[in-house]
């Protein structure tokens, strides 16, 4: 049975610059990458594919536009997960993809996945948007069961046992294949590929396809605003004793002690 790993081309939010005064968000300037939790999903796929005896393939539908820069970054992100031990990758890209909402993307991804895979692994949320909507929609589109927030996955014959972490309890569920499962950061420690593995990964199959939206989106982003957070950023100087005293004084003046 083959495994599909969903990898999103996410904005690197740590590097994203915003200007609080003008409200400008420098999206084009920010680099993109595979999300950290998608590396956990990749690690889990590499571990599970031995038990399931098939291949594990990364699937990326890029919504970053079709510029040369974004294309290069998308291929780099896929090389990164291939170097961790995936067998191949599919990159779907094209004009208009940036307007796609989760409804559109789920429909397009389902066409790529249906009849080819028995298990889909994804992150509980993407690095930049963190909605977790896509794997849920994909499961519904495919008509497969969906289990989110996995902290452990064990294969047992024709089903998997998934431990998942919810706010007030931990739950163990048994799910039949085919299924869609999203994982958390705590499920494993993603391996860091060696240089030779990265070199080898560049020779693994990376199948690039053109995107054309199968349906119209249900949601449009009207505006992106920059929240105003003003911090004083005062550095307290002095030795330990002095610093503690100065801090206490400052907090008293703020009226929070």
């Amino acid at each position: 049975m083959d495994i599909a790993v969903l990898v999103k081309q996410s904005l690197d939010v740590q590097e994203l610059r915003v200007d609080q005064d003008t409200g400008k968000i420098y999206i084009e300037d920010a680099p993109t990458k595979a999300g950290d939790i998608e590396l956990n999903a990749t690690e889990e796929a590499v571990r599970l594919k031995e038990k399931l005896g098939g291949k594990a393939i990364a699937i990326m539908l890029s919504t970053g536009g079709a510029s040369g820069k974004r294309q290069k970054e998308a291929r780099e992100a896929l090389t990164r997960v291939l170097a961790m031990g995936l067998d191949g990758a599919v990159l779907i890209m094209g004009e208009g993809a940036e307007k796609g909402d989760t409804y559109v993307i789920a429909k397009a991804l389902a066409e790529e996945i249906r009849d080819k895979f028995g298990l889909v692994l994804a992150a509980e949320g993407s690095e930049d948007n963190f909605s977790g909507l896509l794997p849920a929609r994909l499961a519904a589109e495919l008509g497969w069961p969906y289990v989110a927030y996995a902290t452990a996955i064990e294969v047992e014959g024709d089903h998997v046992k998934v431990t998942r972490s919810l706010e007030d309890f931990e739950e163990v569920v048994r799910v039949k294949f085919p299924a869609v499962i999203s994982v958390t950061q705590e499920i494993n420690k993603p391996r860091v590929p060696k240089l030779v593995e990265i070199v080898k990964a560049k020779k693994k199959p990376l199948d690039q396809k053109d995107f054309s939206p199968p349906v119209e989106p249900k949601l449009t982003i009207r505006e992106l605003k920059v929240p105003k957070v003003e911090r004083k950023q005062i550095v307290i100087e002095g030795d330990v004793e002095e610093a503690a005293e100065k801090l206490i004084q400052a907090l008293k003046e703020e009226g929070v002690l």
């Binding site: 939010v13 909402d101 930049d128 909605s131 949601l219 505006e223 929240p227």
Partner: peptide, 30 residues
Amino acid sequence: SSAVDVSSLSVEDGKLVVERMTFGGKAIAV
């Protein structure tokens, strides 16, 4: 249509408009 973790919702000209945090908290999407 779908959206998660919205902080406000309203109807404007028959359209449902919501606000939510995105880009790891660096922006609010309307």
